[in-house]
Computed example of a mutant assay.
Amino acid sequence: IFNEIIAHLGLLELPLKGRSYTWSNMQDSPLLEQLDWFFTSA
């Protein structure tokens, strides 16, 4: 179902490579996370 929704919405997956962390909450004591997927529309 997940892949069907992605295809239906026309979303494109952006590769996330070469970084230890791909998201931060930008606080003084930051929460750093590595995202599994990142999608965008054309």
Rank of each mutant, 00 (worst) to 15 (best):
L16E: 08
L12K: 02
G18W: 10
R19N: 14
L14N: 03
A7R: 06
T22A: 08
R19V: 08
R19C: 14
A7W: 06
M26Q: 13
E33H: 00
L16T: 01
L11Y: 01
G10K: 09
G18Y: 09
L31Y: 10
R19P: 01
N25C: 09
N25S: 06
L16M: 09
R19W: 04
L11W: 04
G10F: 09
I5E: 12
F39L: 13
E4W: 05
S24C: 10
P30Q: 11
I1R: 06
S24M: 09
L32K: 03
D36P: 00
L16I: 11
L32W: 01
D36R: 02
G18K: 03
L9Q: 10
S24I: 05
L32I: 07
Q27A: 15
E4M: 07
G18E: 07
M26H: 05
S24N: 05
T22Q: 05
W37C: 13
N3P: 00
T40V: 15
A7G: 02
S20F: 04
E13T: 00
K17P: 02
F2C: 05
P15Q: 13
W37Q: 12
P30M: 14
Q27I: 12
L35Y: 00
I1A: 12
D28W: 07
Q34M: 12
N3V: 05
A7Y: 08
L12W: 02
A7M: 12
D28P: 03
F38S: 11
S29A: 15
W23T: 01
S29G: 11
L12P: 00
F2V: 02
I5R: 08
F39M: 09
S41Y: 09
A42H: 07
R19S: 15
I1Y: 05
I1S: 08
N3S: 12
I5W: 06
W37T: 08
H8A: 15
H8C: 13
S41F: 10
F38D: 09
A42Y: 06
P15K: 10
D28A: 14
N3A: 11
R19T: 10
L12A: 02
D36Y: 02
T40P: 00
P15M: 08
E33S: 01
M26Y: 03
N3F: 09
P30R: 08
L16G: 01
E4T: 08
A42E: 13
E33C: 03
L14V: 14
H8N: 14
D28H: 10
D36N: 03
D36F: 02
D28G: 04
W37A: 08
L35E: 10
S41G: 10
E33T: 01
S29T: 15
M26V: 08
Q34Y: 07
E13N: 03
Q34C: 11
D28T: 11
S20L: 08
D28L: 14
A7C: 06
L32N: 12
I1K: 09
D28Q: 15
A42P: 06
F38T: 04
S24P: 00
D36G: 00
Y21W: 15
A42I: 14
S24L: 05
L31T: 11
L11E: 06
L32D: 14
L9C: 13
W23V: 04
R19L: 13
L9I: 09
I6C: 02
D36L: 09
I5L: 14
F39A: 04
L14M: 11
L11S: 02
